[in-house]
Each structure stands twice: as structure tokens, then as C-alpha cells.
């Protein structure tokens, strides 16, 4: 495993586009977090997003993982190009001739995916922790470290999304088409979901099993929850609550998709002549 990871990191280190995109990603990452701390000063109105309660523990875990996961598309481009470049430079062929097995090739890519996801997850944890410690109204240890399942969900979300990208990259072999394909799947899922919602509501649960849907269901949007938190003090109305929690079941679906994508990538590669 260390050998495969060192091979992959060596390739990434020498690729300028991968380096630049990764840097942009992590800079954007920090900026997204810092943006909230800016003090908007419009004369008499002094407004700071950080003071609106979004950085309260444990809500911050939910909010940050949701917001930051939007820019995962940048890392996805790195993952896609690291595979499609192997096709366009024909280095995949050379790697295999040099004695890398097809399984090792896929595994080295998958390890890179896990490593990048882990780095991003660690960063989201550290940044949220720091922001929370600065701005949160509650800083008891018990509250700080509650709802950490959002961090786990964030990690699963990244790994499964990048695995989907890897599979599509191996399938279509061109980076631009791969990105288009991801968008196409998104469109397809939306349309199918819409049809199910309005024509066959009994089967709507199927939509939860679609790959992209299952990934986005992991972390539900946190905005309405913020409203609820605010109004909760005024009126207690528990009947109207959206399910924001992360169940084991929700986690398992994208994990299964990840296995399918990795297994599918390997089989595609094995079946093809290069």
C-alpha cells in the first residue's frame, strides 16, 4: 500500500495542474471559512455572519461540512485529470508494461482519493474547531464534540463522489467529457426524482438510492435548521421538524456505491485492450 501511494503521490507532485488546483482548493477552503468572520459595516448596521449563530457548537459541524463540500468539485477535477492524463499520455500502458498490475493501478488511484478526502476532512475539522472556539456561545467539551458524525459523513461523501469520478474517468477517458457526464447523471437523477415525486410517489424512496442523491442526502442543508434553532426559543413546535440526523443507513448507501465504482473501474480496465 505504501508503494502504491508513493507512486501516486510522486505522479501528483510532478503534475502542475494537480498542484495548482489543490492549492486553489485549500485556499478557497480557508476563505470560505474566513468569509463568515468578516465584519460588514454598513453605517448604522453592523452585521457579522459569525454572530448569527452559525458557528455555535455543534451546529458548526453541520454547517461547515455542508458549505465546504460544495467546492469538492475542484478536487474532483484533480482526481479526474489524474486518471484521464494517464490515458492521454499513454502512461497507463507504460505503467502496466513496467509491471504495475491493473488492480494496483486502480488501488493507487483509490488510495489517493482516500488520502485527499482524509486531508480535506481533517482540515474541515480543524477549521471548524478553531472557528467554533472563537465564536461559539457554548464551549463545553460535551457540546463541542457532539454531532461529530457530520465529519464522518463528510469523509464518506468525498470518497464516494471521487470514486464516482474515477469510474467515469476510466469509462470515458477524456476529462471534459467526464465532468459533463457527472453533470448528466445529476440531471438524470433530478429528472427521474421529479417524475417519481409527481407520478409515482409510492416509489419515491428509490430516488434515495441514486448515487448522487444518496451522497447529497448524507448532509442535509443546514439553513432551515438555523431558522428552527432561532425560533425554537419563541415557540416549541416539534411536529414540523426535518430530519437532519445521519443514520447508519444513510451512510451505508454511498459506501456501497463506492465499492461498486471501484469494482466497476477495475473490471472496465481488465476488460479493455489498451
Amino acid at each position: 500500500m505504501r508503494r502504491l501511494l508513493s507512486i501516486e503521490l510522486f505522479k501528483l507532485k510532478q503534475s502542475r495542474s494537480a498542484k495548482i488546483l489543490s492549492i486553489i482548493y485549500f485556499v478557497l477552503f480557508t476563505f470560505t471559512a474566513l468569509f463568515a468572520t468578516i465584519n460588514f459595516d454598513f453605517g448604522s448596521i453592523n452585521f457579522r455572519i459569525a454572530d448569527q449563530g452559525i458557528f455555535n457548537f455543534p451546529y458548526i459541524w453541520h454547517f461547515n461540512t455542508y458549505i465546504i463540500s460544495i467546492i469538492k468539485i475542484l478536487l474532483a477535477i484533480v482526481m479526474i485529470s489524474m486518471i484521464t492524463n494517464e490515458y492521454s499520455n499513454r502512461t497507463l500502458k507504460q505503467n502496466l508494461i513496467d509491471g504495475l498490475s491493473k488492480k494496483e493501478f486502480i488501488l493507487s488511484k483509490f488510495y489517493a482519493i482516500v488520502l485527499f478526502s482524509l486531508a480535506s476532512t481533517l482540515l474541515v475539522f480543524v477549521v471548524s474547531l478553531v472557528l467554533g472556539l472563537i465564536f461559539s456561545d457554548y464551549t463545553e467539551i460535551g457540546i463541542i464534540f457532539s454531532e461529530l458524525e457530520y465529519i464522518l459523513a463528510y469523509f464518506v461523501k468525498l470518497v464516494s463522489f471521487f470514486s464516482l469520478c474515477m469510474f467515469l474517468a476510466i469509462l470515458v477517458r477524456k476529462s471534459a467529457f467526464t465532468l459533463g457526464f457527472v453533470f448528466l447523471i445529476y440531471l438524470g437523477e433530478s429528472i427521474l426524482g421529479g417524475i417519481l415525486r409527481f407520478q409515482a410517489e409510492d416509489f419515491l424512496f428509490i430516488a434515495d438510492y441514486f448515487p448522487l442523491n444518496s451522497m447529497s442526502n448524507l448532509i442535509v442543508e443546514p439553513f432551515t435548521r438555523l431558522g428552527i434553532v432561532k425560533s425554537a426559543t419563541a415557540q416549541i413546535n416539534p411536529d414540523f421538524v426535518k430530519d437532519y440526523t445521519i443514520s447508519l443507513f444513510k451512510l451505508i448507501i454511498p459506501v456501497i456505491w463506492t465499492f461498486i465504482f471501484v469494482w466497476g473501474s477495475l473490471n472496465l480496465l481488465k476488460k479493455r485492450d489498451l
Partner: peptide
Amino acid sequence: GMILNVVN
């Protein structure tokens, strides 16, 4: 290609 593992 076949003996070099790139063609099945």
C-alpha cells in the same frame, strides 16, 4: 501487447 499485459 498480449505478452505485456496490455491486450487481452
